[in-house]
Write a protein that binds this DNA or RNA. Sequence first.
DNA 1: TGCCCGTTTTGCGCTATCGCAAACTAAAGG
DNA 2: CCTTTAGTTTGCGATAGCGCAAAACGGGCA
Lengths: 236, 236
Amino acid sequence: MAKVDTSLVAHLPLFAGVGPEALDEILREARSARYPKNTAIFEQGADAQSFFLLLHGHVRAAKTTPTGEQIVVRYVAPGETFGLAMAIGAAHYPATAMAVDDSVVLIWPISAWPRLIERFPAIAANTLQAVGTRLQESHTRILEMSTQQVEQRVAHALLRLAKQSGKKLDRGIEIDFPISRQDIAQMTGTTLHTVSRILSGWESQGLVESGRQRIILRDPHGIVVLAERTPDSGAA
Amino acid sequence: MAKVDTSLVAHLPLFAGVGPEALDEILREARSARYPKNTAIFEQGADAQSFFLLLHGHVRAAKTTPTGEQIVVRYVAPGETFGLAMAIGAAHYPATAMAVDDSVVLIWPISAWPRLIERFPAIAANTLQAVGTRLQESHTRILEMSTQQVEQRVAHALLRLAKQSGKKLDRGIEIDFPISRQDIAQMTGTTLHTVSRILSGWESQGLVESGRQRIILRDPHGIVVLAERTPDSGAA
DNA sequence: TGCCCGTTTTGCGCTATCGCAAACTAAAGG
DNA sequence: CCTTTAGTTTGCGATAGCGCAAAACGGGCA
């Protein structure tokens, strides 16, 4: 059982208010695992047997309809938890988690959860905070889908990704994991075709530089402007 | 300070795992208030000073964009908490809460929250569960907005309302609070015009009976069928 | 090096839904 | 009982974005 270095995770919001020796105890219940790029960590509908903390890499959580359509629920960045089905009393995972990059995760058995939150109530409070934040983001997303056009939604989505997982380059900000037009479509409620058209347009305006599963925001401010444009504030 | 009857709220999920004397202590920190129909309980953006438990009535939580468009985040039914901004570390309410019926609520000052969850960790766990459930519902809503057409989304929305706040009648199930076409539009990401057209259609098929801020599902099963119809499973 | 396959691009017609406008209806209040 | 006002219905033209199809592209792998 590989031992996890306490100091690596001590600063995470999840463990705020938890003492060092307690942290050690918590980590002792976890195991770590590596998932290569494009491997599933758990499938939607499977028994929820574990919950996870992402250490390295990036994970896409996606939800599929009975008819096969998919949406991307979120991208998990290092330091974030995912697969918290048990915390909300669900017996099955409501989405599929897939490593989009080589990823390393900590894994706790769900059986550890009740004990954990009893001994360390701060964990419950911190998790509540994290889930609450995600709920808010979710509402923002619904608001956008209800009131904005596709181009603005794509702009907002890219800006959020850049904020969460952007790598600063001299030429701009690069989304730091492989992401396809299809993925972006599934985050914004549109089709890959429309996303492709939008990015092509932006590219010719010098707003972005993009290629196969790769996007660089060359003019983040210009994209902010786009994102905030109301349906009728005239374009060029 | 009107005293709240412990037995009235003891069964609520929020208080699961909390002993009777503890419950008494918790309730002692709350005050109750009555909000007449169509009065605001708090406004989006206001300092979050309290959190709430709805005892009677119905409350609409709605989010407004800078440009004035609105969406309905949810309808709160009796027994549910709302205004939990503080639990997620937000200083301001992210939405406006309005009583859509004469309503009675319990109100705690946010200052009570840290103490509450420290003394009664079950409260944090129960709240986490509630917020988690709402997050899931939120994702379902996003999935629907991304993959379904308006008619199906309206069908799903009405079925959920009927489940949450439906009153059984001989002629069907009535949504037990005043709700306008506009409200439904703001729940499903469409316009009141489109909702009106859809309901008119359903009415002539005998699926619903509706009027001014009033909707009765006369054939819930028929609506389920509609809700599950894929975009191209042929209509009549 | 060359092939194969997943991704991206682009054209084009179609339609679900919006947006505006106007008439209609019914509850509420004086 | 009448007036006011908020909610609802309906028609019609406009269009954003979809869906389908096909071609171009580019990496990875044998």
